[in-house]
Design a protein around this nucleic acid. Structure first.
Length: 436
RNA sequence: GGAGAGAUGGGUGAGUGGCUGAAACCAACAGUUUGCUAAACUGUCGUAGGGGUACAAUUCCCUACCGGGGGUUCGAAUCCCCCUCUCUCCGCCA
């Protein structure tokens, strides 16, 4: 949520910035400016009346004590009169405040100065790429869903049986690969200074609102209606909400957390060719990185977070590219976002595996997440950032497709100490030892 | 699922109609004293919003907030109603 002050002080700037997000905000902005003005006017009158009423109430008490019945009755009459005026003004004020708020929450965050204008993914800007696309000799590479079947490591059909489409069942080395990736990502995050947390995966409405999923993306979350709780679409929600309604000391910043959680997304309305295999799921695993930082340092933190995520795909040996999203492709809450995509050699497709964003104070304002500089009486809003580090399914898809050798799949070097095996398939099947 | 208790400032906790934005204590912060540490003493010590001054302020004035919402009253932390949440005991159970 933007600050009213930002809009009222610089309406044209806000309109101009939101145009980059492909959004004509003139009407909303002008409405907010007008409503804010009306609201203040009525608020001033209202508060003056309340002040008078408070003074009268005090006086009446005195008068009674002094036995001045008649004076007390007169004061009472005036107070009753005021009460009606106050009631009316209060209603007006509430109505204006509500309308202002409702208009305000529908405005997306302002894009940062580096964000290019644009309507869709086609206008995104590639920042850099790395890694090499694999080549295959003597065989045709299979898409990962074929490989999953061939080596019996992911069973989509049984997932359908248990739950439904988009809920795969990982088996054997497939399941172990999941666990290995989670541990690898968490360990790497710890090395970069992120403190691990394990949050609840069901969140209440206030948490959903705090990070901006509610009311904007209501339909994207699974909702347990009986208890009015939401399954998290990302660990960003519970982890960032740890600090909802907090006033931190400046010296506590930056706060860095990593968390593994399953993520649940309804993905309503996104059916098509891109949902095959692991490409788009309703439930998937992800390690998320969250930072709460001083506003002067958030863009530096964003760059460092990008480097951390880049390090992950590099270590996994996956061909990748980093993209800076254009205004139109960015989320409601983000001020700037970098997407990471990895190459899937059989599908011949780039798949998004991470989205790293700076939300500036947009989430913090909703969360009431503030900090105080030493010796300063004022509070200021923190900046929040988060990024996937990383989402598993598409990483698995990329590993399977890129590392296939015809008769087996090679596990990236860095993962082997976590998996306990070097290959999926092939002759050298490791037989699990029972003796240990 | 059944029964009961409770929700007050960073924490403990007082407060049953006006003198309470809120005692006291603890913590924290600043200072004084003492070779250092400790102790003692003094002071500060909630948040948000509006207004004024110079379109400035962390100053001044005002308003709101004692879980949330509504009501009674000239006046509500305090009385009434509704909701939410937390805790304890029992049952069930990873």
């Amino acid at each position: 949520m933007l600050l009213v002050k930002t809009i009222v002080d610089n309406p044209e700037f806000v309109i101009e910035r939101l145009a980059i997000k492909n959004r004509d905000a003139r009407e909303s902005v002008e409405k907010i400016v007008a409503l804010d003005k009306q609201k203040r006017e009525i608020q001033t009158k209202l508060e003056d009346n309340k002040a008078e009423q408070n003074a009268l109430a005090k006086k009446i008490g005195e008068l009674f004590k002094q036995g001045k019945q008649q004076d007390a009755q007169d004061a009472k009459a005036r107070s009753t009169e005021l009460k009606n005026i106050i009631k009316e003004q209060e209603d007006q004020f509430q109505a204006l405040d509500k309308e202002l708020y409702e208009t305000l929450v529908l405005l997306p965050n302002l894009p940062y100065e580096l964000v290019a204008p644009g309507k869709s993914a086609a206008d995104n800007v590639e920042i850099r790429r790395g890694g090499e696309n694999p080549s295959f000799e003597g065989f045709e590479p299979l898409p990962h869903w074929e490989l999953a079947k061939k080596y019996d490591i992911i069973d989509f059909a049984t997932g359908v049986k248990i739950t439904g489409a988009g809920f795969p069942l990982y088996k054997g080395k497939g399941a172990k690969l999941q666990r290995a990736l989670i541990n690898f990502f968490l360990d790497e995050a710890a090395k970069s200074g992120y403190m691990e947390v394990e949050p609840p995966v069901l969140v209440n409405e206030a948490s959903g609102f705090g990070t901006g999923q509610l009311p904007d993306k209501e339909g994207q979350m699974y909702h347990c209606e009986v208890d009015n709780l939401y399954l998290v679409p990302t660990a960003e929600v519970p982890v960032t909400n740890i600090y909802r309604d907090e006033i931190l000391d400046a010296k506590q910043l930056p706060i860095r957390h990593c968390a593994y959680t399953p993520c649940f997304r309804r993905e309503a309305g996104s059916y098509g060719s891109d949902v095959k295999g692991l490409n788009r799921l309703h439930e998937f695993d992800k390690v998320e990185l969250v930072q709460i930082v001083h506003p002067d340092k958030s863009y530096k933190a964003l760059e460092i977070m990008v480097l951390h995520v880049e390090g992950l795909v590099k270590k996994l040996g996956l061909p990748y590219r980093i993209i800076r999203l254009c205004g139109g492709d960015m989320s409601f809450t983000s001020a700037m976002t970098y997407d990471f995509e990895v190459w899937c050699a059989a599908q011949q497709k780039w798949l998004e595996v991470s989205s790293v964003s700076n939300f500036e104070s947009f989430q913090a304002n909703r969360l009431k997440l503030r900090f105080r500089e030493d010796g300063d009486k004022r509070t200021r809003l923190c900046h929040t950032l988060n990024g996937s580090g990383l989402a598993l399914p598409r990483i698995v898809a990329s590993i399977l497709e890129n590392n296939q050798k015809g008769d087996r799949i090679e596990i990236p070097e860095v993962l082997r100490k976590y998996t306990g095996f070097d290959f999926i398939g092939g002759e050298e099947e490791i037989v699990e030892s029972e003796e240990k």
